[in-house]
Amino acid sequence: MKCISWIITLAVVAGFVLPPASAQKQTVKLDQPVLLTSCGQSPGPLKIKVFFGRLNIDYVYNLQASAGDLSAKKKEGKPFKSLIIVTGASLKGMGASKVSIEDELDRTKKLIAEARKQGMKVVGAHVEGMERRAQGATPGDNSDELSIDAVCPQSDLLLVRKDGDEDKRFTAISTGKKIPLVTFEKNMELSDVLKNLYQK
């Protein structure tokens, strides 16, 4: 019994002393220019675009970026140095772009493969909270989770608004795949997060 008490006490103390995944020091650094895209055609990338503009970060915003776009830039002699893919699906967005979630998963798979070939850093992002998760979607619509599965486990860094990790899904991917996880609580904090990531 005494032993159990000690274990509980140690666990509680460890909870205070050891930093949670979200507070891990941001060690990954990213280079410009950046290709900013989506997996699921949600408006999430727009939020990052706003801060890129304010921070004068060299970026291209293309919600339907393909592996061909990465190759073309490389041929021009101006290759992208990092790739941010914002996960979370919008049926409205996919409908407007006339693509299905299967098309999105296929495009993203090829995009990540080309990025890997070019030695680029890949960031899997989720910036719209639980509303852009299966819990906030039509019953039976799992497209948000499919887009997360397609991108996040293959990323070099996860960038997540904290309320989207309510069920610890991103924490689990981070821990399981040993991928650094950077979280932020308020939208406006994203500015500092991006500044730190792209700061030399």
């Binding site: 408006p43 727009l46 919008s90």
Partner: peptide, 12 residues
């Protein structure tokens, strides 16, 4: 309060 964002579909 939370305020989301959606794009206006071009074909609706």
């Amino acid at each position: 309060f939370k305020m989301g964002l959606e794009f206006s579909p071009k074909n609706l």
